[in-house]
Structures are given as structure tokens and as C-alpha cells.
Design a protein around this nucleic acid. Structure first.
Lengths: 221, 221
DNA sequence: CCAGCTCTAGAACGTTGTTCTAGACTCTAG
DNA sequence: CTAGAGTCTAGAACAACGTTCTAGAGCTGG
């Protein structure tokens, strides 16, 4: 069940096949960017690679493999901030976490794939960075683990929420959702008053939440 | 595109059909609980209701409708805490948020469905409660919106992460994942040292993160 | 009795992920 | 130079899926 990372990769032939994993993953990401999760089928993926659809199964055991690999691939886009030994841990964490969120929003399909174990090298490297930044800042167990999970899960949750609305960029739908809410002002007075579905500055909102979290963490150091 | 909540429901017949939406949704939740998202097909759902598979399409326009309805259904299980007018807002928020997470973990498939707009009455009612609790505690914009989103997204992210591992309860897989990590101790020293994939008390970890977040929010009141 | 609904469901279509199978190509061993 | 064991490609085919089309029950009000 579901683990590209736990299986050894197939050893390549003498001169290397024209269709390697990397090409497959790159094409998969392109396809996902274009048409979302529903747009990625093994046949369309093969077509884009000028290959037979069943050929893919030599390099990859599953469609799940492709999805796992594509997901970890985009986490590789997240730049690791410079480690400042003296330094401000909060700016390190903020930089990483903002980059993380930005990468997921650049590939909105990624949020829908988070329901699979994140064991790829890129994800693990970034989580390692996050936790080590907290440790260097002086956090100890059990706050260290709790802090890491809190930050990571906050990013994940935000990515899920934001990419949902981003993927539905149909303005007609947004308006209908707005109407749906405002016509029930008596049920949801606070939500309506605060414009819960409005298109506000999500980056600022996210950063604020991050500040709350880091403030609470700082108190434990 | 994707909106049961924005379409008016079909008006029922004279004496009410034996196959209403509520029965369909209930059966869908049962099926999802048993076999996960992959186990829910329109044919299996109809079979469980002793109906023709195509009959479902009279009561529901889409499979997406079924998923949207099932998802909102389980949010109805989340109990709204007593509102204490004088009261400790933190205990209110904690009770709601813990109940929210627990409901999603009781139905681990729900996390995989979060990539759709949450516009159902049950979700909106709970979000309204959350935000009104923060408002009553004295939070004002823009912290009010940011706080609501932070809490909601933290729950969502945690639910995604935890239900992923819960769904993969195969101990063999967990062990393989452990080995995968520990054999790369040089790459991920901090993660390995803190037992990142260990089966720890997730409820405590979650509660700790919640405390950080609420502490940061309290400072803004 | 009929007309007009609410509701049911069989047949069928196009797509999907995946397996089975046969064959091509390439390098090494004898 | 030939035989053969990988390495890699891909056509045919299968079961299962979501969904549409269509025909027709069953009931109710006129």
C-alpha cells in the first residue's frame, strides 16, 4: 500500500532508457498544473511523453507512485533559508513556511494529494530544517515536536483551504457562495459581518496566524 | 462546478419517496467508514439502498454532491460547547476544536475530501461559533479573521496529517517507514532524534499546538 | 379516464487503471 | 560471431467506473 519511497527503484539499463522517472514526473507536474488532478491520466501522461500508455508501468508501479513523486517534486521548489547561527529563528521559520505555502499555491492540485504519507526526500528535508531551527532556538521536548507539527499542519491546512478557492476561480461561483452566506445573515451573523468569504489579503492573514503561533512558541523557550 | 449548497433541492413528491437524500447520505457515510473514499461508488451505494444505481441521479446530480453532503454530515457530529457569557473563551475554543478533530478522525476519509468548498450548514455553524467566541473574547479585525482562519486551518491540517497515518494502520508499513527514516539518520538527524514518525500521544501534541496559538491570540486582546 | 407529475431503473457509452503478453533492442559471456 | 539474459516498449483486453438516455411504473388532481 502506497509507498514509492519504501521500495528500491528499478536499476537502469546499460545506457539508460529514454523514458526515465524524472521525465515522467516532470510531465506529470506539467499535466497537473494544466488540468488539475482530474486531468492526469496514465494515457494522457504517456501521450505527452510520446510513449505507449502501458510503458509507464515499467518505470512506475502505480498511478499512486506518479502522484507521490509529483507531490514531493514541488516541495523541492521550496527554498531553504540561510541558517543564521546567531540568528533570528522567527525569520528563518517564516521564510521557510511562506515558501512552502507559496509552492503549494503555485500547484493548487497539491493540496488534494496531501492525504498520502509525506515520506519523500524533499518534504523530509524541509521538515528537518523546520524542526532543527526550533531546536537551535532552544525548544526542547515535548514542545519541539509539538511546535514542528503545529507549524507544518498550519501550513497544510492553509494550503488546503486557499487552494480550494483558488482552483474555483469562477467568479460566478464565488458570487453565488457570497449570496448563499449573506442571505442567511441571521444564522451566521459574525461570519457575514467579517466578510468570511471575501477576497482579502490571504498572505497577510496567514502571516498573522503564523505570528500568533510563533509568539506562543517563543514563550516556551 | 461543485455546489450542492448553491442549488435549490428538488421538491419532494406527494407522499415522499422511499429514497430521500438523507437515506442516501447516511448510506454513503456508512460506506465511506467501511471502505474509504475508494469504496464509495454509485453502484455500491445504490446496492446498499436496494435501488438501481441510476436512480440515485434523481435525488442527487452528481457523485460530488454525495461527497459534499457526506462531508458536511459528519461535521454535524461536532458538539457546540455551552456558551459561557462571562466565560473562559479558551475552554470554549478548545472544546469545539478538539471535537472537530475527533469527528474527522472518526471518519478518516473526511480529510481527503477537504479539497472542496466547505459551504454546508454544519461547517458554517461551527465556524460561526468559533469566530463568535473569539469576538466575544474581545478580538477585533484584522485579528478576528486571522484568528478564526488560523484555528480552522490548524485543525484541518492536523486532521489531514493524522488521518493519513490512521488510514494506513498496517504495522508493516509503519515499520518500513521508520526504517526508511532511521537509515538516513545523517540526512534527518533532528527528525530521527525526536522520533518524528513514532506513535506518540497525538492528542497531547495537538493540544500543545493549540495552546501556543491561543496564547498568541490572547496577547492581541 | 386521462394528463401530468414524481420516481425508478435497464441499457449503453466513453474512460479509467491495470494486467497479460509478445516482441524489440543492447550488452556480455562463451 | 552467436546465444541469451536482461532492459525496455507497447498492443490487446478486462473489469469497473460515472453518467446519460430512455422507457415506463405509480400516484394524484381534475
Amino acid at each position: 500500500m502506497s509507498g514509492v519511497w519504501l521500495r528500491p527503484p528499478r536499476s537502469p539499463g546499460r545506457s539508460g532508457p529514454p523514458l526515465h522517472r524524472e521525465r515522467i514526473v516532470a510531465a506529470a507536474v506539467e499535466l497537473l498544473d494544466q488540468d488539475g488532478v482530474g486531468g492526469l491520466t496514465m494515457r494522457r501522461l504517456a501521450e505527452r511523453l510520446d510513449a505507449g500508455s502501458t510503458t509507464l508501468y515499467w518505470h512506475v508501479t502505480n498511478k499512486d507512485d506518479v502522484l507521490d513523486l509529483a507531490l514531493d517534486q514541488i516541495f523541492g521548489e521550496v527554498q531553504l533559508p540561510e541558517q543564521t547561527p546567531d540568528g533570528n529563528w522567527q525569520s528563518e521559520v517564516e521564510a521557510l513556511v511562506l515558501g512552502w505555502l507559496a509552492a503549494m499555491l503555485r500547484h493548487p492540485w497539491s493540496a488534494a494529494l496531501l492525504g498520502r504519507p509525506l515520506l519523500g526526500p524533499n518534504v523530509l528535508t524541509r521538515t528537518e530544517f523546520l524542526q532543527s531551527a526550533l531546536r537551535r532556538a532552544g525548544l526542547v521536548e515535548p514542545d519541539l515536536t509539538a511546535g514542528t507539527h503545529a507549524l507544518a499542519n498550519y501550513v497544510i491546512g492553509t494550503a488546503v483551504t486557499l487552494s480550494t478557492w483558488q482552483r474555483l476561480d469562477d467568479p460566478e461561483f464565488r458570487q453565488a457562495a457570497q449570496r448563499h452566506l449573506t442571505t442567511q445573515r441571521d444564522r451566521y451573523p459574525t461570519l457575514v459581518a467579517s466578510g468570511h468569504l471575501d477576497d482579502r489579503d490571504w498572505a497577510d492573514t496567514f502571516r498573522r496566524g503564523l505570528k500568533y503561533l510563533m509568539a506562543g512558541l517563543a514563550a516556551r523557550m
